[in-house]
């Protein structure tokens, strides 16, 4: 049977307790409401609590670098392929402006950051997508950087770890974007053939062409609590089919229940899980030939 809400782990405040606590409305300027429980927070409170809501444990979105630093050994991350930037290959209206705005707002060049790092002393190839950069959409650069990271992992017998966060293929690059699905999937094929461990972490939200390509081709697929994961977005499903969406539809817990994820892991316990997985895989290359 389907259970609509996730079972809170020990680091979480029990959801049932939340409802009993009155909501505070410290609505002074700069504060914002938690999207899950509506308590008002300041940026400082959020950061102090590692990007969770201190009241209900809601996982606020974090950027690509925070993701990487959150699981890697201190000072071990080296960014690679940082010099890649998007063009406007189709001369798509407004694309150049949107790119410029995203670069300015995120201080990133594109929606994915990739490189090498160590986790629990194991060398890994790692990447993290950033949902703030044009909704983490995959165009030529995102596809190319992920592809290079995967190929590097295959060549150097490194495990590959990716934090996914994406609205899908980037419309503004047309078919060049769609083909990145095939390109990254083919690269994953080589990674598996090389015997490297591949761990994919699906964070909120992971939808469309990313879910339907490299993201769901890993040896171990981990979801973050409450993350929206699917192919077609829930609004489109509702609009096009008129179907009523079941409770908790497309949330990580729902996907676990339907057999699509290996496990759900809260963000604070992600590093320890990755270390454990890398340890049991003896560093991540299991080619025993």
């Amino acid at each position: 049977m389907f259970k609509p809400s996730f079972k809170p782990k020990k680091t979480y405040i029990d959801l049932s307790a939340v409802k009993k606590t009155p909501v505070t409305f410290d609505t002074r300027e700069g504060n914002f409401p938690c999207p899950a429980c509506s308590v008002w927070l300041s940026e400082a409170e959020k950061i102090q609590n590692n990007d969770f809501c201190p009241r209900c444990g809601y996982h606020f979105a974090v950027g690509a670098l925070e993701r990487i630093y959150g699981v890697c050994d201190e000072n071990s991350f080296t960014e690679l392929d940082a010099g890649l930037s998007s063009l406007n290959p189709l001369d798509f209206p407004d694309y150049a402006d949107k790119l410029a705005k995203a670069r300015e707002e995120t201080i990133l060049m594109e929606a994915v950051v990739t490189g090498t790092a160590a986790i629990g002393g194991h060398n890994v190839a790692i990447g993290a997508m950033d949902g703030r950069f044009m909704m983490g959409s995959m165009g030529s650069v995102v596809g190319e950087k992920i592809c290079r990271a995967i190929e590097r992992a295959a060549e150097q017998s490194l495990p590959f770890i990716i934090f996914c966060c994406s609205g899908g293929a980037r419309m503004q690059e047309g078919m060049l974007s769609l083909m990145q699905m095939a390109k990254t999937s083919a690269a994953v094929g080589r990674l598996h053939a090389a015997g490297s461990l591949y761990i994919s972490i699906l964070t909120h939200p992971t939808t469309g062409g990313v879910t339907a390509s490299f993201a769901s081709l890993a040896d171990v697929i981990i979801g973050e609590p409450g993350a929206l994961i699917g192919f077609t977005g829930p609004r489109v499903i509702e609009q096009t089919t008129g179907q009523k969406l079941p409770p908790g539809f497309q949330r990580a817990e729902f996907l676990l229940e339907h057999g699509m994820l290996d496990l759900i892991q809260p963000r604070l316990e992600m590093r320890s899980l990755l270390v454990r997985l890398l340890n049991v895989h003896q560093g991540g290359n299991h080619d025993q030939k």
């Binding site: 063009l87 165009g139 030529s140 190319e144 060049l176 095939a182 390109k183 083919a186």
Partner: peptide
């Protein structure tokens, strides 16, 4: 597949 994509580096 590998060569599909246009970008600046």
């Amino acid at each position: 597949l590998r060569k599909i994509g246009r970008f600046h580096e």
